[in-house]
Amino acid sequence: MNKIKILWVDDEIDLLKPHIIFLEARNYEVITCKSGQEALEELAETRVDIVFLDENMPGISGLETLSEIKIIDSSIPVVMITKSEEEFIMEEAIGSKIADYLIKPVNPNQILLSLKKNLDHSRLISEKTTSNYQQEFRKIAMDLSMVNSYQEWADLYKKLIYWELQLEEIEDSGMFEILESQKIEANQQFGKFVERNYPDWFTDVDA
């Protein structure tokens, strides 16, 4: 099983070494950055599961970094960490769709709780989506052998597109490959459907 990969961004990251050791002992991989710019450069090269982001940093602020992270990948959960309890900062961060908000000083168990809350939620959604598609896969396979009208084909392709969008969100490459093979089969069967019915579509029934 791959380690969960954390990007922790704080200009005082050296002071957080005990927290990082705590997480690494629990099989998390922690990548550290000391500035927003450094974090954005790292995210351009590396896929991470979650970001812990200090709000008050020199150069690019935490809120500015948050906005740029969401442009790079809007699905990455970002936990904002700050010394400030000012309402406008909280509102800005929440408006930018942060996953969580922690006030310094944070202790390791707070970090662990935030990880489990956010990543387990994503895992449960992923598992549920995968399970639902596995059930729907069998139904779509049966429909492929029986579909015999334009409307039935339209309904079938709506289902395939729906599951394509769902599986893209959870990034399950295994399930996505199965869906792709099902789409290929559907295209082949639709081609045969067209070949069978093409002459009749041009027959003048009133003649």
Rank of each mutant, 00 (worst) to 15 (best):
K3Y: 12
I6T: 00
W8R: 03
D11Q: 06
I13P: 01
I13R: 03
D14A: 12
D14K: 13
L15D: 09
L16K: 07
K17F: 03
P18R: 01
I20K: 06
I20F: 03
F22T: 01
L23Y: 01
L23D: 00
E24M: 04
A25Y: 02
A25P: 00
Y28W: 05
V30C: 09
K34T: 12
S35A: 13
S35W: 08
G36P: 07
G36V: 07
Q37I: 06
E38F: 06
E38H: 10
A39V: 13
E41G: 01
E42H: 08
E42C: 10
A44G: 12
E45Y: 07
T46D: 02
R47H: 04
R47P: 00
V48E: 01
D49K: 04
D49C: 07
D49N: 15
I50R: 01
F52T: 01
F52C: 01
L53I: 04
L53R: 02
L53Q: 02
N56Y: 11
P58T: 03
I60P: 00
I60A: 08
S61T: 14
L63N: 04
E64L: 09
T65Q: 05
L66D: 03
L66A: 05
S67P: 00
I69K: 01
K70R: 04
S74I: 06
S74D: 14
I76A: 05
V79M: 08
V79S: 04
T82M: 11
E86F: 11
E87F: 12
F88I: 15
I89R: 05
E91H: 14
E91A: 14
E92D: 15
A93P: 03
A93G: 09
G95C: 08
K97V: 11
K97C: 14
Y101S: 06
L102I: 05
K104D: 05
K104N: 06
P105G: 09
V106R: 08
N107M: 09
I111M: 13
L112G: 00
S114K: 00
K117S: 11
N118A: 03
D120Y: 13
H121P: 03
L124P: 01
I125L: 15
I125A: 12
S126V: 00
S126I: 00
E127L: 10
T129S: 04
T130R: 09
S131R: 07
Y133H: 03
Q135V: 08
E136R: 13
F137Y: 11
M142F: 07
M146N: 10
V147S: 11
N148S: 12
S149T: 15
Y150P: 04
Q151S: 13
E152I: 05
W153D: 09
D155E: 15
L156P: 02
L156N: 05
K158L: 15
K159N: 10
K159E: 11
L160I: 14
Y162S: 10
L165S: 13
Q166P: 04
Q166E: 11
E169V: 07
G174T: 12
M175E: 14
E180F: 15
E180Y: 15
S181H: 14
S181V: 02
Q182D: 03
Q182C: 07
A186H: 08
A186K: 06
A186Q: 06
Q188N: 10
G191L: 12
K192Q: 11
F193L: 06
F193W: 11
V194C: 14
V194L: 15
N197G: 08
Y198P: 00
P199R: 02
P199Y: 10
D200F: 13
W201V: 08
W201Q: 09
F202T: 08
T203D: 04
A207W: 15
A207L: 14
